[in-house]
Design a protein around this nucleic acid. Structure first.
Length: 1043
RNA sequence: GGGCGAUUAGCUCAGGUGGUUAGAGCGCAUCCCUGAUAAGGAUGAGGUCCCAGGUUCGAGUCCUGGAUCGCCCA
């Protein structure tokens, strides 16, 4: 009654995953894994909401599996881990998609179409790919509760956002101001700095050196890359601490910063005179276009640099932040000849109705005609574009709503300091620097599909009232508010409220920045504060969030800003940053390049576990991934198939009729062979290490430790222990082997569970659950393992030496062209005495691996071994300092044999270095040993292995017998026998082969499970299978039948 | 122009606190094993550790400068 399920080949991986998935579904395993820990210490995870109006890509798989591994790990460690999914629903991307569907473009067309219908379409659009998202989420094993997902467009969510905005407004932290903002004329909206950050592109703009004449043939020379701003010019700014030069240029004289003369006018420019900035200040000039009245005067401003240009900056207050600042300082106007669509108004007849960027040419030509342009040159620079529609942004003065984040900047920095960033350098580097340069957060968008700003402005007194809940809205509304209020536009726009002054207030037209929505998720996902006084208890702050590195200025920021403003607390304790997914050549994946690797391709071909393992272990998660199907495939072969084969090996032999079951008695660990104790020691070490690394948010190192363990288990433990699993002459030993391997694989299933939840659960099911109804029915309902206290570092070191000796022995065999099947008389291992003592207990393993009759250790310095010495820099370096090279020479000149003899006798060696006596101990000298002549030798540092190369007739016979066994095993397989089938066997062959059979008859019969073995010409039975072949160029015939 | 990060074998990546001969996988070459077999394994070739200075007895590792690439910001 073994209960084992047969294990298929690793090639059936994806169907295995789907079976496991079905088990989870049927058993409601995810929900149970959460519920099981209810009441325990919560571990708080926040899902950064993706927008589901596009298909999920491989980069989404990256973030989703990282979001999965830590909650799974901490669940197994006993924490209660709620995992609420979330969807970002609002915003420009959604509007753009709908505009495309409707075949319309721009705000006037949207308004003509109707906001109500437009927003209804947006609401539909955000769910368009929800099914595919949920299907992928499930298939990659990302356990998150999609049935209870929060959606930023939900009424409750919007109400929480209103609460937060009203709270900030009432605290005086919201203001409206005319500011120059990055503005997309196509979308008709201002962009936040983190949106601007996403749209930089390298473009070539026309740049010109323009002359601003001041009379008498003298002109200020000004450089600009935005000629279209010149009609709005109001002033020219100079740096107060810079000297300016007058340069002769033909019959003209040009003013510019002295330091920039060579760069602008060449090295042989003639400087007429140099003056301090103060001499220029207040000077008036003729504006480039005499269309708009203004003072057109030289002002002094610190922001002017001499890094490029001419050191004189043209000031158009409506089109630059610095310009606006200078205008305020010097009392200048801020005329704006450009409308909201980015088109010139009638103020500039020359370019009326033209898009500003397109008007550059026209304006430059006009200036050139009038002799105002010194030079024109194309200028390549990085310029911000709209992150969705790619229109070049304009810096443009307009009223906007702001949150005074600058007031809490220092507090944000303080709170940030306590966050565990991964990688650490983001805290003070990328993110910290960004926070230091914090500017007030522009939160308003003049759009449609978003959380409406809950601000109402009175038509009488102009005061603004913030509404923080729907109840408050109902209370103050002058009209009936429906029970099923949709708090979106246009419905809320039609609800006026009473102003305290007695007048009627109407909602301001703007909606909120979508980043404010997502930053509100810690409280809005739970409808705080409307869910009662404890609605955030155990839910704030998060222990862990995780997104791609580009979110530093996005979600990571909006979370921190809102956490600080509203709760005076960092909203997360740990942040894991993720890198970009690139193609195999390191290029960004993009549809236009056609180099996108679809997640489904990877999953269908390699499976989710392989996909996950690759992402977790390929490299530090915050580096870019050079991603392709091939690298996932390689990962899968290397780790998952090795693990699977080891697992399949155990199950195959355990399920044989006289196999093994987990309940069977097995010897206590300290009575098991060294190999078993070694495996368990390695297991305990790995449990400890993997746990520590995962606690520290480092799945890469954790995964690599698991790879090492699985490799050790497969390529050393199983390799050297194979026969123990099917030799039944020592039941206790077989049971020890099974129990050891079973425990290793069971524990590995637990350790692998957060990484590769499918294979882990499949293994757990077959190794544990099917045998023991009291055990956890799924690995994901089990507890994380603890080390079993069986660590034996001496044994681990000794085993490492045994592996090394085996490697060297194989190298020596290769050197001597002696195949492994040919037994040899002896291997001589030359090593220091301590190593020899450690290795002695393992010499049987080494002997078997090297196929030698005996292993002999040679440690003395005489006869068989040559010793040479090297200084141990690690111990001697600090002691000797500058004398170290002299010491190295002294050691090299030492009589190594005598020194080693003394050291082995427990004595020290005294040498003289530059006249000073130095006492050397065993640890100060490193030995290199090698056997002397007569052996095939390979050496590696402190170990050398020699093989006796003489093959006696007896060894030759044994080698032949082994060849014969191999041939018979091949014949067995050719006859399609099961591994446990008994056979009757008849052999025939040359005299030499018959001699080998005679010498090893019993052994051969035992190896191939022959109950009867005959030799000679006539076959005494009707063979099921017959094979004629050659062995060592001599004929051999094998006939066999079932016994 | 500034900030952050990266640069180690043909490719993908490891290399606490400086210390003997810089490692692994893939690929390649040559082989082995055949009771894990639609598998497995070994040995080997392959490296100016981006460059140049500096600190040090000793630098892939620390410092300075530079180059190239990436991300972010002006």
């Amino acid at each position: 009654m073994s209960g084992w399920k047969p294990v298929g080949p690793a090639s059936g991986w994806t169907s295995m995953e789907e079976r496991v998935l079905a088990r989870w579904r049927e058993g409601d395993v995810f929900r149970r894994s959460v519920e099981m820990r209810r009441g325990a210490d919560p571990y708080v995870f926040y899902e950064g909401p993706p927008t589901a109006n596009g298909r999920p890509g491989s980069h989404h798989v990256l973030s989703r599996v990282f979001k999965d591994i830590f909650p799974r790990f901490h669940t197994m460690r006993g924490r209660y881990v709620e995992r609420k999914a979330g969807w970002d629903c609002h915003g420009l991307p959604v509007e753009l998609e709908v505009e495309k569907q409707l075949g319309i473009s721009g705000k006037p067309e949207i308004e003509a179409f109707g906001i109500a219908e437009f927003n209804a379409r947006c609401r539909e659009s955000v769910g368009e790919y929800l099914d595919e998202w949920e299907r992928l989420t499930e298939r990659i094993g990302f356990w998150v509760d999609t049935s209870e997902a929060y959606r930023t467009m939900d009424t409750d969510y919007v109400e929480s956002v209103w609460w937060s905005l009203a709270t900030l407004f009432d605290a005086g932290r919201v203001y409206e101001s005319d500011k120059v903002v990055p503005y997309c004329p196509r979308c008709g909206t201002a962009l936040s700095s983190h949106e601007v950050a996403q749209g930089y592109k390298d473009v070539t703009d026309p740049s010109i050196y323009v002359k601003f004449p001041t009379g008498d043939g003298l002109s200020l020379l000004v450089w600009t890359t935005t000629p279209w701003t010149l009609p709005a010019n109001q002033a020219a700014a100079i740096n107060p601490s810079v000297d300016y030069a007058v340069v002769v240029a033909g019959d003209e004289r040009l003013v510019m910063a002295e330091a920039l003369v060579p760069a602008v006018m060449g090295d042989d420019a003639v400087i007429e005179r140099v003056m301090p900035a103060s001499e220029l200040a207040g000077m008036e000039y003729a504006p480039p276009f005499d269309l708009i009245p203004g003072r057109h005067v030289v002002v002094m401003s610190d922001f002017v640099t001499t890094e490029d240009g001419t050191g004189i900056v043209h000031i158009a207050p409506a089109f630059g932040e610095d310009d606006m600042g200078a205008a305020r300082e010097h009392g200048l106007d801020a005329p704006n000849p450009v409308d909201r669509q980015g088109l010139f108004s009638a103020t500039v007849p020359l370019a009326e109705g033209q898009f500003v960027k397109d008007a550059d040419r026209l304006l430059i030509d006009d200036l050139t005609t009038r002799g105002r342009v010194l030079r024109e040159k194309p200028y390549e620079h990085s310029y911000p574009h709209c992150w969705r529609c790619s229109t070049p942004l304009l810096y443009y003065a307009k009223p906007s709503w702001y949150i005074r984040t600058t007031e809490v900047r220092d507090r944000m920095l303080e709170l940030n300091a306590s966050v565990g960033w991964h990688p650490e350098h983001v805290r003070d580097g990328r993110f910290g620097r960004w926070l230091e340069g914090n500017i007030d957060w522009a939160i308003s968008r003049e759009r449609y599909w978003g959380t409406p700003l809950p601000f109402w402005r009175c038509g009488d007194c102009n005061e603004v009232t913030a509404i923080g809940s729907f109840a408050q809205l109902r209370e103050r509304a002058t009209v009936e508010v429906p029970d099923d209020l949709d708090p979106h536009r246009p419905w809320v726009d039609d609800i006026p409220v009473r102003c305290p002054c007695g007048g009627t207030a109407h909602r301001v037209p703007e909606v909120a920045d979508v980043w404010f929505d997502s930053g509100a998720m810690p409280f809005a996902q739970h409808h705080h504060p409307f869910g009662g006084p404890d609605d955030l208890s155990g839910r704030f702050p998060a222990d862990f969030v995780c997104e791609a590195l580009d979110q530093t200025r996005g979600w990571f920021y909006s979370l921190l800003a809102e956490g600080t403003l509203l709760f005076d607390e960092a909203p997360y304790r740990n942040v894991v940053c993720l890198g970009l997914i690139l193609d195999a050549d390191g290029q960004k994946m993009s549809k236009s390049k056609g180099n996108v690797v679809e997640p489904w391709t990877v999953i269908d071909h390699a499976g989710a576990d392989a996909f996950r393992w690759y992402l977790f272990t390929a490299q530090s998660p915050w580096e870019s991934f050079r991603f392709s199907l091939d690298v996932v495939d390689e990962t899968r072969r290397r780790f998952l198939f090795t693990l699977w084969n080891t697992y399949a090996f155990l199950v195959t032999y355990a399920s044989l009729p006289d196999g093994w079951s987990p309940g069977d008695a097995s010897p206590p660990v300290d009575e098991r062979p060294a190999m078993d104790r070694w495996a368990l020691s390695r297991l305990d070490a790995t449990v400890e290490h993997v746990t520590a690394r995962l606690v520290d948010y480092d799945p890469t190192a954790a995964g690599r430790a698991l790879e090492d363990l699985v490799d050790d288990l497969s390529n050393w433990y199983v390799r050297t222990s194979r026969r123990r699993f099917w030799r039944s002459d020592d039941r206790a030993d077989t049971a020890a082997a099974f129990a050891t391997l079973h425990e290793c694989l069971t524990t590995i299933a637990l350790l692998v569970a957060p990484f590769c939840p499918f294979v882990a659960d499949e293994m757990w099911d077959n190794l544990v659950a099917v045998h023991d109804s009291s055990a956890a029915p799924s690995v994901h309902l089990a507890d994380w393992p603890a080390p079993g206290g069986r660590r034996d570092e001496d044994l681990e070191q000794a085993m490492a030496a045994a592996m090394e000796a085996t490697t060297l022995g194989r190298s020596a065999r290769k050197e001597a062209k002696l195949k492994v099947r040919q037994p040899l008389a002896e291997a001589v291992i030359a090593c220091p005495p301590a190593t020899a003592r450690a290795l002695e207990g393992l010499s049987g393993i080494v002997a078997e691996e090297l196929n030698v009759r005996a292993v002999r250790f040679v440690t003395d310095a005489g006869g068989l071994v040559e010793v040479s010495l090297k200084p141990n820099y690690r111990t001697l370096g600090p002691r000797m300092g500058k004398e170290m090279p002299a010491m190295a020479q002294t050691v090299a000149a030492l009589d190594a044999t005598a020194a080693v003899t003394a050291l082995d006798a427990g004595q020290s060696v005294t040498v003289s270095v530059n006249g000073v006596e130095q006492v050397l101990h065993d640890e100060d000298l490193l030995r290199e040993v090698r056997p002397t002549e007569g052996y095939a030798v390979a050496e590696g540092g402190a170990l050398a292995v020699g093989l006796a190369t003489d093959i006696t007739p007896e060894l030759e016979m044994e080698g032949l017998a082994r060849d014969l066994v191999r041939a018979i095993q091949t014949a067995r397989r050719a006859a399609d026998l099961k591994v446990e089938d008994r056979i009757v066997l008849h052999l025939d062959g040359s005299a030499r082969i018959r001699e080998a059979i005679d010498a090893h008859r019993e052994w051969i019969a035992g190896e191939v499970l022959a109950t009867d073995l005959t030799v000679g010409h006539g076959v005494p039975f009707t063979p099921l299978h017959r094979e004629d072949g050659e062995l060592d160029a001599e004929p051999v015939a094998i006939s066999l039948s079932l016994a």
